[in-house]
């Protein structure tokens, strides 16, 4: 089958998910001796082509339209390319921008859509489930065909405009620099209970971080958030307390050297990652741990 995969870039950089898409696309095309087409829409198209031009990629289409992602342009461009290439499968990233255009493309082309795919298998149709990372060959080849494609974008259908970008989560602490992170999640239940975890961090001379709901609730500032939309951290020790280990959280901390989980639910996905665990109530374990190190647990 022919597979068409759409690369992703932002602010001049190709994003890694592009390579994951290419890998998945190559596997899928191989299952049927088919071709893998990639498309680069907007941005520094030539530089992106250089990086994507690897063994296993048959054709790269370039659509030199705009600097940054715009879903109105992407939807039109992918639709035009779809008509040109006639792929059996379209692969788009399950990123924030992917979620901003893939559903519209599917609806426009009346194609079935599956988001958050972590495995795709050809079984006559497609069976979609499990995750794959990585991109095998490191060297570039130059036998990939690069085709500039004129998608004939209708500018009047472009009704949204990116006016800028903003970095959030700055401030005095940088959790990505910390050697030991004590991280708190929704299991803490109440804002005033955060003091308990704060006391543990202080006793261990560690830095306090959190999962997203804690920041959404305004209990800790944005610069403490670990995960996909927060910071990526790689401490020596990461202690996850009352955190379930949702994919978007794990995206930010899977690189930690040693992961410790304190969670009452032994089935919580955080235990798939953890090196050490305590399956018990954090309100019992954390005070005991503070005392172990000679600290005094606050009343919560």
């Amino acid at each position: 089958m022919t597979v068409l995969a759409i690369a992703e870039h932002r602010r001049g950089e190709l994003r890694d998910v592009s390579f994951e898409l290419a890998t998945a696309g190559r596997d899928l095309a191989d299952a049927t001796d088919g071709d893998l087409h990639l498309a680069v829409i907007g941005g520094a198209v030539e530089a992106f082509v250089d990086r994507l031009d690897r063994e296993g990629v048959d054709v790269i289409h370039t659509i030199d339209e705009g600097e940054e992602f715009n879903h109105d342009v992407y939807v039109q461009a992918v639709e035009a390319l779809y008509d040109e290439v006639e792929p059996d499968t379209l692969l788009m990233p399950n990123s924030v921008n992917g979620l901003d255009y893939a559903p519209a493309v599917a609806n426009r082309l009346s194609l079935p859509l599956v988001t958050d795919a972590i495995d795709i298998e050809h079984d006559g149709g497609l069976a979609v489930t499990r995750e794959k990372y990585g991109w095998p060959p490191a060297e570039g080849t130059d036998d990939t065909e690069v085709r500039a494609f004129d998608a004939d974008i209708d500018e009047s259908a472009v009704r949204s405009a990116v006016t800028g970008f903003q970095e959030v989560g700055g401030g005095d602490v940088d959790i990505s620099e910390a050697e030991v992170l004590v991280s708190v999640g929704r299991g803490i239940e109440d804002e005033e209970n955060i003091a308990l975890i704060e006391a543990l961090a202080e006793t261990l001379d560690a830095t306090l971080s959190s999962s997203r709901p804690i920041v959404d609730n305004g209990w800790l500032p944005k610069n403490r958030q670990v995960g996909q939309s927060g910071k990526q951290v790689t401490p020596e020790v990461y202690i996850a307390i009352g955190i379930s280990g949702a994919v978007q959280h794990v995206a930010g901390m899977k690189g930690a050297e040693t992961i410790v989980a304190i969670n009452t639910d032994s089935n919580a996905p955080i235990y798939d990652l953890a090196d050490y665990g305590i399956v018990d109530d954090l309100f019992e374990v954390v005070p005991a741990l503070i005392e172990e190190f000679g600290g005094e647990p606050p009343e919560v």
């Binding site: 932002r10 924030v96 949204s160 405009a161 939309s229």
Partner: peptide, 15 residues
């Protein structure tokens, strides 16, 4: 503002 990955927000005007 659209919340992108890695602590970056995209500022967009939508008709």
């Amino acid at each position: 503002h659209r919340e992108l990955e890695g602590g970056v927000e995209e500022l967009t005007d939508v008709e």
